[in-house]
Design a protein around this nucleic acid. Structure first.
Lengths: 337, 337
DNA sequence: TTGTAAGCGTTATCAA
DNA sequence: TTGATAACGCTTACAA
């Protein structure tokens, strides 16, 4: 590749007949520069296509990079996309740039991304942690003044600033809705049990059952993170001697999969409540009852927590809980046969 | 904030009683180091929490940062999320890290993100350009050896490596499907006309009309990028003296909005073909006929184009076209009244 | 196997 | 108003 050397401050300086420091003064609007000198420098910068090297600057200034690193498990999941959008809107106002990386839901990719961000000396780190990660090593970073906020899921082995949905209470309310409409055979389809959100929502499911005096049946619990797995799970759940009459889908992909599975079976008599709203929820037949989250608010809250730390807030770690909201649209109100 | 100074190589070296260079050898597995020395260095690194400063390293090595910058218009749109996923999978194999920023569909935010990435000396730049952007200034970067690939949309004022869907032909096929089923009043709902994909897909729409000898009626064209705008648009289109009998929705948000709008009107007699597939397309009633894109393949193709440049490929700019596929599911095959 | 000197592109400090 | 010098943390090239 051509690898034309890039113009540096010295190049610009030489072109004009001044020192690099003078160019630096122009670039950063720092200290006095004669109007005529400034004009000539600006011209030379344009001519040489000079672009200041931020790496060098940050290194010298010792300042952190003006970026915020966000680790999410999956770029293709609109839930995390919306979370990222919420973060971005909030940090932009402060002149920070958000950069996002995807861990593909693996602890190892997550570690590697975090290292990349740390090595790049980001201003702050926001993490949607994958299952099985150990975040204790980040304690030192935080002690060194790096704001770290966990999003959607709590950290492994570390008490830290966090923002989560009201998972347990939301799930409880969703399942209670099914119980209120007469169901007692209610299936739970969610992520892998190691995942924080799955554990919390599962607890909410069990809370609702316990409240109603319905015995827990482990045969009604299935894993189904992606569409097809959830579709397959729902097929199994409807197939036994004592089939489920209702399904609680514990995340947006599970909801979609359950809907696909039921449609393929031609079943419209099964009640469904999903955790997390879907854009097309209202047009489904029956329309989908959901426990809606507010992913943009989660992103915003995480950004605010982080910026408060940046401003020197020294209080102990806080966990912000973003409320969920039950939206009854029909699918959750179908009675059992 | 505490701002505890971060341990450097010299700190580690001092701790052990060696030189920074020796520590560097251990960190980079470069050159011989006595087993015992290495052990003591590793221990000191752990004790001091040493994290190598990538900025400093990259600066010295003169190498570009080992990251690839991707600019997308909207993190919340799963189309772009999936594109990003495709890029990430492809670049990861090469040890590159993908960082993504969102331009919020504005030329100004896009410029600012591109500057951030350039200043950070990314290895390559992938851009989904917003409408109204002028990308000529990037010519110099490319000449300096920076691989730049445009994704989903072509650049403004610049011939460059690009990856796009077969927008025009795909849209033509989608509209032709509606015509084949007897429609002559076919509405077009898409993005703002300034957007590349909208222009191409609109051309495809007109191609199909022309082929069938159907006169173009500008009253059948509406803008609707987000759900609600598209829902409102479809309401207007069904409301005139000569209402549309079919709708071509030119992107995923428009499709969703059209479906929402029709459902709210209680209309199931209107034929719909959408550009870009939706996860729930098959369960809608009627199931949604779409012109499916392959966003992951687009991301992968862009990454490959970029890596070929990185490997020294000097050929002139290429545009890779990723084919689309018509999936007939029912909504596009509804006959006119 | 380890160290020394120099330099990447920038800015802080002090002097002119 | 401008410049000289050193330094940020690291690696290259060479020497010991």
């Amino acid at each position: 590749m051509s690898k034309v050397r890039r113009a540096t401050m010295s190049d610009v300086a030489r072109e004009v007949g001044v020192t690099a420091k003078t160019v630096s003064r122009v670039v950063n609007d720092d200290g006095p520069v004669a109007a005529e000198t400034r004009a000539r420098i600006l011209e030379a910068m344009g001519k040489l296509g000079f672009q200041p090297n931020l790496m060098a600057r940050n290194m010298r200034v010792g300042a952190r990079d003006s970026t915020v690193g966000l680790v999410i498990p999956d770029m293709g999941n609109p839930f995390f996309g919306t979370v990222a959008g919420g973060v971005e809107n909030a940090v932009r106002a402060r002149g920070l740039t958000l950069i996002v990386g995807s861990s593909e839901e693996t602890a190892e990719r997550e570690r590697s991304l975090i290292s990349t961000f740390l090595a790049r000396r980001v201003t702050a780190l926001l993490i949607v942690p994958s299952a099985g990660g150990d975040h204790r090593p980040l304690r030192a970073e935080r002690a060194a003044g790096l704001p770290i906020v966990f999003l959607d899921r709590l950290a492994g082995g570390l008490t830290a600033d966090s923002v989560v949905s009201s998972n347990r209470e939301g799930a409880r309310a969703g399942v209670a809705q099914l119980i209120r409409h007469g169901h007692r055979r209610i299936a739970f389809i969610g992520d892998h049990p190691a995942l924080y959100t799955r554990r919390e929502r599962f607890q909410g499911y069990r809370d609702a059952l316990a409240e109603a005096g319905i015995p827990f049946d482990r045969d009604l619990v299935e894993i189904g993170h992606d569409h097809e797995a959830a579709a397959a799970a729902v097929t199994r759940l409807l197939d036994g001697r004592e089939p489920a009459t209702a399904v609680f889908a514990a995340n947006n992909f599970a909801s979609t999969g359950v809907i696909l599975g039921l449609a393929r079976l031609g079943r419209r008599d099964v009640a469904v409540v999903g955790f997390d709203d879907l854009p097309l929820a209202e047009v489904l037949e029956p329309a989908l009852t959901v426990v809606a989250q507010d992913p943009a608010a989660m992103g915003r809250a995480a950004a605010e927590l982080m910026m408060a730390r940046l401003d020197g807030e020294r209080s102990k770690a806080r966990t912000v809980v973003i409320p969920t909201r039950l939206i009854a649209r029909g699918s959750g109100e179908i009675p059992p046969p």
